[in-house]
Amino acid sequence: MAAASLPARAQSHAHGHDAPAKAVKVADTAGELSEGEVRKVDKAGKKITLRHGPLKNLDMPPMTMVFQVGDPAMLDKVKAGDKVRFVAANPGGKLTITRIEAAR
Rank of each mutant, 00 (worst) to 15 (best):
K25E: 08
A102N: 04
A89C: 11
A80D: 05
P62K: 02
D82G: 03
T49D: 07
K56Q: 06
A3I: 07
R51A: 14
M63V: 08
K94V: 03
E37I: 00
L50F: 06
A2N: 13
G70T: 01
M60E: 10
Q68N: 14
K25F: 09
S34V: 12
I97W: 01
I97F: 01
K79W: 04
M74I: 02
A27Q: 12
K94W: 00
D76I: 05
M60D: 03
P91R: 06
A2Q: 12
P20L: 02
T98W: 09
K56I: 02
P72S: 13
P72A: 15
A3V: 06
P91M: 03
K94H: 12
P7E: 02
S5R: 13
H13D: 06
A19N: 11
A19F: 13
A88C: 15
V24G: 03
L58F: 10
K47S: 08
E32I: 04
D71A: 11
K83I: 01
P91L: 04
D28Y: 15
H17W: 11
I100D: 01
D76T: 11
V87L: 07
R99D: 04
G16L: 07
K83D: 02
S12W: 04
R39V: 15
M1H: 13
K40Q: 14
P72R: 10
P62F: 05
P61S: 06
K25A: 12
R9P: 00
A4W: 09
G31W: 11
M1C: 08
I48S: 06
K56V: 05
K83Q: 13
